[in-house]
Amino acid sequence: MSRIVALALNTFREAIRNKVLYLLALFGVGLIVLSVPFSQGALHEQMRVTRDVGLAGIELFGVLIAVFVGVNLVYKEVDRKTVFALIPKPIHRYEFILGKFVGMLMTLAVMFAIMSALMAAVLSVQTEATNAPSNSAAIVRAIALLFCEVTVVTAIAVLFSSFSTPILSGAFTLGMAVVGHFTPELRELTARIGTVPSRIAIAGAMRLFPDLNLFYVSGAMVGGQRVTVHGSFVDWGYVGTAALYGAAYSGCALALAMIIFSRRDFV
């Protein structure tokens, strides 16, 4: 355990000493701030924009960071031969993968905290001016869901980067994320075409992609009801279920990454 913590802290330290990351976070922050003057209409309308753009910004930049930092996590260590000194230390190879993953989640947590804090600040100013409710409880749940989403994306990135180059891994991970966002549409589409066996095969293959729609629900229909962060949003029970799905999916991806990494030659 202490070994995984040590490896995670080192990964986290690398990330926070990396200037590119701050740049990305700055873009996310800028997006939220810039949304305010551009939004039209009454003040409480502006709050809707802040919530929508803020959450979209957190999702977009969270996913981008997860992909671009995630695909380098393992690859860079092998490419730069830093693993050569690490593997002969009394660690298991799977502990290395876990340490990298946990360190990445710590990094994402900090990025999420920065972007959320900014969004909260903007919202609180707007609340003062309008006396309209900020709906912060719903926003917290929405952000928790987004964190589950980037966890899944990170796990996929680590899986690909355990055996492939960053460019390929990045393309595959982004591809998985995009497909994962359209799973319901694709499911509907594929349910109608082809023969029965091919439909079953396709449905099975679809299971390989993460159902990322579970995590970004504002404006969607859940259980026959429309949910939004502006009004009635999903409860913590839903968040818990979605988190379980995310954990299971990430667990499978990581387990695969550990198996691949454990059998590799470091040349």
Partner: peptide, 18 residues
């Protein structure tokens, strides 16, 4: 066994941010 072992890789390279 690894606890009692030390290894220097050839042309070692370490984390340059440390």
């Amino acid at each position: 066994a690894k606890r009692r072992l030390g290894f220097l890789p050839e042309n070692p390279y370490f984390y340059d941010y440390l």
